[in-house]
Simulated scan of single mutants.
Amino acid sequence: MSEKIKFGVEHFGDRAAPLLLLAGGTTMLSWPDPLCQALARGGRHVVRYDLRDCGESTTADPDAPAYTLRDLAADAAALARELDDRPAHLAGIGVGGMVAQVAALDHSEVFSALTLVGTRPVAPGPVDGDLPDHDGATMGRLFSRPMPDWSDRTAVARFAADGAEILGDDPDAARVRAERIYDRAQSTAPAVQMANHLGMVFSKLDCGPRWRERLPELEVPTLVVHGRRDRFFPVGNGEALAREIPGARLLVLEQAATALPDTAADEVSAAMLSL
């Protein structure tokens, strides 16, 4: 991990306990507080962190990131080593789940378990023919909206709440989370706020080469968590991950969409702690 990169992190639980590292998707706040707290109560040192160009991590140029998906995977491995000299449980959500897959493949000696939440086995862009793509009607509604004034905290929070409602998530929870994300961002510059709220920086990354064909190489216990009502990465993506990773367990949250709801904290934490 480069000394020039600073990562925003938050700790839960006993720092001497086994490490459970949560990669943001893209900010750490995509991991709900109740889930982090439940995992800590289960005897883990839980650390959630912001990816580059998000939250309190180093912000350089979200419009033209000078790093790749492989660099983000190396970040996860280096951060895990820095926090604990024992192999860690790595979890990723959304695009953070893509980071986690590559990290576990490229740095297998660093990780002892893997949790993948609401993600898919291919990079942003055209999807493989056997995987369900984003729901077209939902994406049309989501991306036809005018951008908010990114310097206006209230407008940004309203935009996030409206988007959550389109996706089938809790708009009130999304509004509160957006306010927290806004307050933690490095600035109100549009590119910075879009990187934080929409993860737009991720679509600009070099995410090659493909890794899906390498998933059978994974030898760590793996949990795949997916919302049945997810319209962004439909549940067939999670089902594919569970099929292609040897021995992986699939937990489908019947009432969840894209975001992890607070009400799922006990069920998800129990499954993660069982790895």
Rank of each mutant, 00 (worst) to 15 (best):
K4N: 05
K4F: 11
G8V: 08
G8K: 13
H11T: 05
R15S: 03
A17R: 03
A23W: 14
A23N: 09
G25M: 07
T26C: 05
L29S: 13
L29F: 15
S30I: 10
D33F: 10
P34C: 04
L35Q: 03
C36A: 12
Q37A: 14
A40H: 14
G42A: 13
G43I: 09
H45V: 11
V47F: 12
D50I: 05
D50F: 13
R52F: 15
R52S: 06
G55E: 11
G55K: 12
E56V: 14
S57N: 08
T59L: 11
P62Y: 11
Y67W: 15
L69D: 03
R70T: 11
D71I: 10
A73D: 12
A74S: 10
A76H: 04
A80M: 03
D84A: 14
A88R: 06
V95E: 04
G96Y: 13
G96F: 12
V99E: 01
A100N: 00
D106N: 01
H107T: 00
S108M: 01
S108Q: 04
V110S: 00
F111P: 02
A113F: 08
L114Y: 15
P121L: 11
V122Q: 11
G125M: 06
P126I: 05
V127P: 00
D128I: 03
D128F: 09
G129L: 06
L131W: 09
H134D: 00
D135F: 04
D135L: 02
G136K: 09
T138M: 14
M139V: 00
M139Q: 02
R145Q: 14
R145D: 05
M147N: 10
M147A: 15
S151I: 08
R153F: 15
T154F: 09
T154G: 09
A157N: 04
F159A: 01
A161P: 00
G163D: 01
A164K: 01
I166D: 00
L167G: 00
D169K: 05
A173V: 04
A173R: 04
R175F: 14
R177Q: 07
I181R: 15
I181D: 08
I181V: 09
Y182E: 02
Y182K: 02
A185K: 12
A185I: 13
S187W: 07
S187L: 07
T188H: 11
A189Y: 15
P190H: 10
Q193P: 03
M194T: 07
N196D: 15
L198P: 03
V201L: 10
S203R: 11
K204H: 09
D206S: 02
R210V: 03
E213Q: 14
L215F: 10
P216T: 01
L218W: 14
E219I: 03
V220E: 03
V220P: 01
V225C: 15
R228D: 13
R229K: 09
D230H: 07
R231C: 07
G236S: 00
R243W: 06
I245C: 04
G247I: 14
R249F: 14
L251Q: 12
L251W: 15
V252M: 06
E254W: 15
Q255D: 15
A256K: 07
L260T: 12
S269W: 11
A271G: 05
